[in-house]
Amino acid sequence: MRRFWHTRELSTVAILALEAIVFTWYLWPEGGRAHPFLNGPNGLLILKYSSIYGIAAIGAAIVIISGGIDLAPGAVIALTSVVTGHLFVKSGWPLAPSVAAGLLTGAAAGLVSSWLIVRVGLPPFIATLGVMGIARGVAFIITEARYYDLSRTIPPGSRLLGVPVDWVAPVVMIAAACVFQFLMKRFQWGRAVFAIGGNETAAVFTGIAVGRVKTSVYVVAGLLASVSGIVLAVAQGQGKADLATGYELDIIASAVVGGASLAGGRGSVVGAVLGALIFGVLRNALPQIPGATFYDRLIVGLVVIVIVVLDQVLVRHER
């Protein structure tokens, strides 16, 4: 059991499976009607909406592993949707450069955070809190309370590089998870991120370029948040400044439920994606339970606490 919990991704998969089984059983329809939870389109829906959180949670996990925290992803998602929307709708740019500019915006937000942390020496919480405000503020300034209608950008049923458009977001999430899992586990860069989160002083003494690695971590997190921003803008068909309000906490919660330790040095990219799926299933299934509507935030909160407590109890027991 302990060894099982130690391979943290496995235990997260187990929780996800348990969750799916519980809802399948609980929502089992009477008679021969179609199952409201366990069906193909609903599964795709869960994947699609989870990937908005999941893609950003990959970045959040990396930041947390490095011993930091990023509060900006919600605001970066909004700013990306606004920048892309503005260029595409208002300025009449083609789609690809508009999206590219949106992604650059996210990377730039990460660069500003890392500059404040590495050069100015602000604690990550404060630096990214500031960037969160700035990004949201810039989004409001650009839109002036309007929103950009993106609903007709991509006709339904079209394909992107051979992938049906509904599947693009999940595919991006899975691809990003694979790439970053590999980078974190098999590359010097990933090991440096773990080392910095585990013991930053020792990392300096070991000759690791701490500042440079941290910069790359926040830029990656910003970039991934802006990918989430594009996905959300397309899914909702609009770019606007109050998009994704409060998402940063769900994104951090996904990473933490997936095994990232806020003390730094511990966590998993794949775990963060699984954590996002755990919340995605909750958000999808709870509203289908009659009378549960008002309970869903409460349940989400309890789930975070239970999973993290379980984790700590089992891991601390080892010592």
Binding site: F194, N199, T201, A202, F205, R266
Partner: peptide, 12 residues
């Protein structure tokens, strides 16, 4: 404080 990473393996 300065020498070891307690979250990494001996090999690392």
């Amino acid at each position: 404080r300065q020498g070891l990473f307690f979250n990494l393996s001996l090999g690392d």
